[in-house]
């Protein structure tokens, strides 16, 4: 699936001043690759992926999946599209408190009208939550909640995955587990876009971007740098 964002801007009114973050950003994440976007807080990273994920209407520009401008279709169609094609791991805890771990993971597939129990069990095993499948989110640790969010984002085998600070506040073991999982999805052909402060995540990047003042700049990362990061991790 070809994803393209053209001249994306989101305007905010801040103290009687209109600011644009992102500001005229064009971006084409590649399927089968992990794209990492880093940058300071407030630089517009999360806003950019929200626009790309179809949950925030940009003030300017358009976002196309193949030839479809997702903001030109109805909310029902966009939501259905998001359900089947986009996996989103939000920042912080995002488990639905009224559902068990298993129900949380299965919810997107239920919404898509699929029965993915077997795959959900595989995912639970992959993220190490198989013993907690009947537990409720309030019984889980921070790391377990992030793993749950990752598993839920993958249940419909989406072609695009957005992860917003997926390793925030996690220990190295949990952080690596999630990053490995995302990398594996990219290897299966998904376009994985990670927004993070975490330097370790760069080691998993095929393409690296930096967001600064609403502008997106691409820069490479050498194999040596990656190795160094791995070693540090």
């Amino acid at each position: 699936m070809r994803i393209s964002a053209e001249d994306i801007s989101v305007s905010y009114n801040k103290k009687d001043r209109i600011i644009k973050v992102p500001d005229k950003v064009s971006f084409e994440p590649v399927s089968g690759e992990v794209t990492v976007i880093n940058g300071r807080s407030g630089s517009g990273k999360t806003t950019l992926i929200n626009v790309l994920a179809g949950i925030l209407l940009p003030t300017e520009g358009r976002v196309c999946y193949d030839e479809t401008d997702i903001y030109q279709i109805s909310d029902e169609k966009l939501s259905a599209f998001r359900c089947e094609n986009i996996g989103y791991i939000p920042q912080g805890a995002s488990a639905l408190a009224n559902l068990t771990v298993m129900q949380n993971i299965l919810l997107p597939s239920a919404l898509a009208g699929k029965d993915n129990v077997k795959f959900a069990e595989e995912l639970l095993e992959m993220v190490g939550l198989e013993k907690l499948k009947n537990a409720y989110p309030d019984e889980l640790s921070g790391g377990e909640l992030r793993r749950l969010a990752a598993a839920r984002a993958l249940i419909n085998s989406p072609s695009v995955i957005f992860a917003d600070e997926p390793t925030n506040d996690l220990d190295d073991e949990n952080a690596s587990l999630i990053l490995e999982l995302l990398k594996a999805q990219a290897e299966k052909g998904a376009a994985v876009i990670i927004v993070t402060h975490d330097i370790k995540a760069q080691a998993y990047a095929d393409t690296l971007y930096r967001m600064d003042g609403g502008k997106l700049q691409s820069y490479g990362i050498s194999a040596k740098e990656k190795e160094d990061i791995y070693d540090t991790a």
């Binding site: 949950i55 939501s79 599209f81 998001r82 359900c83 089947e84 995002s94 639905l96 898509a112």
Partner: peptide
């Protein structure tokens, strides 16, 4: 969260 999952 439900919205990100795909609820209209």
């Amino acid at each position: 969260v439900l919205r990100t999952i795909g609820f209209s």
